[in-house]
């Protein structure tokens, strides 16, 4: 196999990925450093290496680092989910939002918060179960979307519409529950829904990582199988892609990733829309490279958004998901304005 057969983009893919990863590390360090007390980079590195001042070490390890890591994992996971969805629906405008996953997760969270609170508005079980509730909500919503769409699931636009319908029902129910529940929970739920990274702790991160690892491995394994999705449906099936089954499998994987991400960091679906675009632009079409790049960009975006929020809005805790949506939408719209050739 000759090296000449690699195209220019694929040749620079590893280099690009290295660059993005480096940017990510830098941003993460900045994210850890920034806060009510600014901790300079050398000190941050010092803490990681085991030394460092005690108060600094506490701040970094207990407060700042979990937040940054959670943002990285959540952003990365949902970015990969977005990539999968865009590939399988053959539409670069698809995002994890469209499956009703996010709204289902929100409903799960609200049911959990409202349902498991006693009269004094204290939670009767540990808050650690909230991600589980979110995950179950997300999974239920996705399952519903697929069950209802049945054979129509192979059409992107039909699936989108079923997703909108299921999402609408979930949104309405969520709203009702938020209104009859205690106000404190409502505020909590609202912040979560808008995408809040600031309330994670290490045990939650552990669970996220454990859940994420097998999912990501699976994604990388099937990455190569995604290649024919660039083609029209007939040709893709002509080279042996079992489209209906394959599609459902990918959707489930994407939904699982989204559920995991959303369970811990709230509704950050927009990251899943944009990160794959950036990935494709920088590393080209190779699926494995694009998946890795999507993950990195997703992590970058969410850490960046969280940083922006802290810089601009401190001491208010404006959810990072909001920021990604606000910053990202103009870019997304600009993307749409460019001539899209191959979209369904």
């Amino acid at each position: 196999m000759s090296a000449l057969t690699m195209t220019a983009t694929t040749m620079r893919a590893p280099a690009m990925i290295g660059l993005i990863a480096a940017a990510l590390v830098l941003l993460a360090l900045a994210g850890v450093g920034f806060g009510s007390t600014w901790i300079p980079l050398q000190d941050v590195v010092g803490v990681f290496l085991g030394g460092g001042e005690r108060t600094q070490s506490l701040i970094v390890l207990q407060f700042r680092l979990p937040r940054v890591v959670a943002a990285a994992l959540g952003g990365g996971a949902i970015a990969v989910a977005g990539y999968l969805l865009q590939k399988v629906t053959r539409n670069s405008l698809a995002s994890p939002d469209i499956l009703g996953v996010v709204d289902g997760a929100a409903l799960g969270v609200v049911i959990f918060l409202a349902g498991l609170s006693d009269e004094s508005n204290a939670l009767t079980t540990s808050i650690a179960y909230q991600p589980l509730a979110a995950g179950i909500g997300a999974a239920t919503a996705t399952a519903l979307v697929f069950l209802l769409s049945g054979r129509q699931a192979s059409s992107a636009i039909r699936l989108l519409l079923f997703g909108i319908a299921v999402a609408a029902v979930a949104k309405a129910l969520t709203l009702v529950l938020m209104l009859i529940g205690p106000i404190y929970r409502t505020a909590q739920a609202t912040r979560w829904i808008a995408g809040a990274v600031n309330e994670v702790n290490w045990s939650e991160i552990q669970v996220t990582a454990i859940a994420l690892l097998p999912a990501m491995l699976l994604v990388l394994l099937v990455a190569r199988k995604l290649a024919p999705t660039d083609l029209d449906e007939t040709s893709a099936r002509g080279v042996g892609l079992e489209l209906p089954i394959f599609r459902i499998g990918i959707f489930i994987l994407a939904a699982a990733l989204t559920a995991i991400a959303v369970a811990f960091v709230g509704a950050i679906g927009f990251v899943g829309l944009m990160a794959p675009h950036l990935a494709r632009m920088t590393v080209g079409r190779n699926a494995t490279a694009a998946i890795i790049a999507s993950f990195l960009f997703g992590a970058l975006m969410l850490i960046g958004a969280d940083l922006v929020v802290r810089v601009l809005f401190a001491p208010l805790e404006v959810p990072a998901g909001t920021v990604t949506a606000i910053i990202g939408t103009p870019y997304f719209l600009f993307l749409l304005m460019r001539k899209q050739s191959h979209d369904g």
Partner: peptide, 25 residues
Amino acid sequence: PIRIVLVGVTIAGLGNAIVYVFLSI
């Protein structure tokens, strides 16, 4: 049709996000 709906959903999402900023504040 799919383009319109996707753009619309996105704009709706953006609008909601902005509204939620004000809500949080």
